[in-house]
Structure formats: structure tokens, C-alpha cells
Simulated scan of single mutants.
Amino acid sequence: MKKNRILSMILILVMAVSFVGCSTTDQEVKGENNPGVGQETKQDPNKQGNENNPYPEYVLEVTDETVTFMSSEGEITVTKKPKKVAILMNSYLDLWYMAGGEAIARIDGTSNIPDAAMDIVQLGKMNAISVEQLVALEPDLVIMSTSISSQMDMIPILKDNGIEYMPMSGNIAPYQAFQKNLYLFTQILDRQDIFYNEVAKITAEVDQIRNKVKDADKPTAVILFASTSKVQAELANSLTGEMADLLGVVNIVPEVPIDGTNKIDFSMEKLVEADPDYVLITTMGDVDKCKERIEQDVISNDAWASLTAVQEGRVYYLPKELFMYRPNADYPKAFTELGKIVYPEVFAGE
């Protein structure tokens, strides 16, 4: 690839500090323990309660009737086996169904929607929920996202109407969060068997993919996040950043000392200094308009053409369904697709 790898790595270490300017912060669970990725889960799936709990600092207590977990709002207790559930983030909707649950309402959209949930009530966009419609449904439980302030603003209304709610976090280290949240959901639904069976299969497949590249030369990459309004650089704890990190890819902005941050402002100067092997681009919103933003903010800069990744054709737009929306059960597919891009010699012929 590039011969001067040592100089490149020195530049990356310098950039870990100098890249930091303004940042994008998502609310996350405070003080919770993040067990290692692919943590051993070979406990007895028929047991319940804390003695068999792989995430004791997240799922705090399980009784015959309730489950208590630690959220960004503090300890939350919900009743097991709710009958009427509204879910205000489709990645959690997908995970809830994966855990054996069903829902009566969701937000608009077609991604991360299980077939069985296609025709349930739609409550509007994720940041513009019809609160009146939601309350009128008289749900037993509302599952919401801590990263969307308008959803968090509903909490007093839900409390006033005696509706249980779950503020969920998953934007930081999403692969780990996927495992923890699936465990939480299966505890609420009394389907521990699903957790131990499904997580074991998914993590085993991911580990096989990771093992394929463990002896390969580790490439460097920048992961650009493009919306219709801005371009940022993703960190190693974002959705794509975490998967790249687990595959051994060296992110040119691996971490910053700001809790809850998974993106920082983009700098062409620092990008040119590091000259990564790959440029990976994720998009949120209309893809064509996101590409226009990339063209305007990035490609139009004369320095763009000097990048090795550009000159050697290693710039990739990543598919939303795997790298913007949480892939959940499709994590092995996402890891494979990323592996094919950054380790083409390892995955040749697949």
C-alpha cells in the first residue's frame, strides 16, 4: 500500500488531538459497564434473575414481574410482558421483534421494519411524533431514543398518563449496545432463550470474520458522515467506526476525550496530512443530496485529488441499511461487506 507507514501512524496520533473541534454528542447511559465485544454468553438460558446476568451494571434487577435497568434518566423499572407497545425508533423496533415481541405502533419509514410490523399504526417522523395519537392508543410501554430530544420531552406526558417508558441508548459502541439491549428486551419478554441462541450465533459469525483478517496488514481509513447540511468525521465508537476498529482498521481520528461523542468536525488539512488508505462515506438523508454536500464541502477542495485513496480508487459510499441503520441480526453481513472493501486480498473470490 504505502511504504511510509511509520510516518503515517505518527501523524494519526497527532491528529487524534488536533482533529478535535466542535463535536456531535449523543446522550448515552451514564456509568454503565460495556463488557467486551463477543462476551461469553454460555449461561443457562432457563435461569432468570441477576445470578445469570452478563450485564449487571445495565440490567440491575429482574423479578417475576418487573425488570429494572440503568438509563440516562437513572433507574427505570418496567413491567414484564407488556401487551401494547409503541416503539419510536425503528432499529429498536427491529430488535424488539428479534427478542420475540410485537408492537402496536411505530414511526414512519421502511428501513429496519420487520414484515410483521409493516402495517401497524405509524405515529409520524422520529423527531415529530404525534403525542396525542400516541397517548390515545393507551400503550403499556413506550420505547424511545435518548438521542432525540423531542422524544425525551414526552416523558412528563407519559408519566401523567400512567404509561411506562424506556429511554434507550445505542449510538456509542453500537455492536456492544446491540448485545446489551437484546438481553434487556428478552428479559422483559421472558425469552432468554432467544438472547443466548441468537447472540451466540451472531457473535460467532462476527468473530470468524475478524479472525480472517487478524494477520493482514492493517489499513488506515477516514470515515466521513455526510448529511444534507454538513460533513463530519466518525470516530472509532460510531456504528461504522466500531466495526472498522474491530476489523483492525486504523481510524485516523480514533478517539477524543469527550463522553458521548461519535463524530467531530471534518478537516481537509488533517485528512491530507494523514493520507489514509481508504475513504469510507456514510450518508443520512437523501443520498443524492448527501453526495452534493460531499462534492461541495470535500471534493471541490483542490487537495482532495492529492489523496492516495482518491488516486487509487479507494473511496466508497457505504449502504445505509448496514452502516447508517443498526444492522442487528445482519451484523455478520455488515462486517463481511466492510471486510471486502478494506481487505480485498483476504476476501478475494467471496
Rank of each mutant, 00 (worst) to 15 (best):
Y343K: 08
D119K: 14
D94V: 02
M144L: 15
V67S: 06
K84H: 12
V131G: 01
V135Y: 10
M70E: 11
L88D: 05
P254V: 06
G170E: 06
S8M: 13
G313R: 11
L247N: 04
T41M: 12
K180R: 15
L93W: 12
I143A: 03
L322F: 14
R326Y: 14
G101Q: 05
E273I: 07
I258E: 05
G36F: 09
V213Q: 06
T261S: 13
M70Q: 15
D115E: 15
N50D: 15
I10W: 13
E350K: 07
A86P: 06
L247K: 00
F347V: 11
Y165T: 02
S267A: 09
R106K: 15
V310G: 05
G339D: 06
I172E: 03
V17W: 13
Y278F: 15
E132D: 13
K333H: 10
S145T: 11
T308F: 03
N4Q: 11
T220I: 08
G38S: 04
K2T: 10
P344G: 09
I209R: 04
I148M: 09
N127R: 10
M98V: 07
K30R: 12
I202C: 01
Y92S: 09
I299R: 13
E242R: 05
I172Y: 09
S306M: 05
K159N: 10
V131Y: 10
W304T: 03
S71Q: 10
P327I: 04
S130H: 08
V199D: 09
I172P: 00
A216M: 12
D286E: 12
